[in-house]
């Protein structure tokens, strides 16, 4: 009736990678080793799959994840310029994390908020109808909050 047991097992790979990434933030080499044993796959097979799909990252993410939507609607509304601004401000390119580990930046295909283009997702919150000014304010706000939190910790 069902697919053979090993096929069934292998079909768990992507869901399990998703679970690991959701819980850990990235796919660590140790996790690949673990999965290989769990799913009767070689580490290479898992690595091939993990690097094929955009969603999986193999490095720890920054504390704040900025995802710039580059769907068509967002492109037409000029999101690439906003991306440039972010790159300039953070000093990193898409796919990278700032050296202090605070921000990581990704370009993503459509997030489905086309009616609100251009859209930028920061820490899973969609910010629509972005402008240069709104973007700078948003980043300023995060910086400020981080700074305050740091201070608080410092006082303790």
């Amino acid at each position: 009736m069902q697919a053979p047991p090993t096929d069934q097992l292998h079909s768990k790979l992507i869901p399990m990678l998703q679970e690991i990434q959701e819980r850990l933030g990235y796919i660590a080499p140790e996790a690949v080793e673990w999965l290989a044993k769990e799913l009767k796959l070689s580490e290479q097979e898992i690595y091939g799959v993990a690097t094929f799909y955009n969603f999986f990252r193999l490095n720890p993410p920054g504390r704040h994840e900025i995802r710039v939507c580059l769907g068509t609607a967002c492109h037409v509304q000029g999101n690439e310029k906003l991306l440039d601004t972010i790159c300039e401000r953070l000093g990193i390119q898409p796919g990278e994390t700032t050296p202090d580990g605070r921000y990581s930046l990704e370009r993503v295909a459509c997030v489905g908020a086309c009616a609100l283009a251009p859209a930028i997702v920061i820490d899973d919150e969609v910010h629509g109808r972005m402008t240069q000014r709104a973007l700078q304010r948003l980043l300023d706000k995060i910086d400020r909050e981080d700074e305050e939190a740091m201070k608080k910790r410092g006082e303790k």
């Binding site: 292998h10 079909s11 768990k12 992507i14 869901p15 990678l17 091939g48 094929f52 999986f56 295909a109």
Partner: peptide, 26 residues
């Protein structure tokens, strides 16, 4: 239900099936 993982090509039916099977979506 099976969630994709960010590969546009998986909209192509043979790639989609490869993806369900836990393979590279080729």
């Amino acid at each position: 239900m099976m969630e994709g993982a960010g590969a546009f090509v998986c909209g192509e039916e043979t790639a989609l099936m490869a993806s369900i099977e836990g393979k590279r979506g080729m």
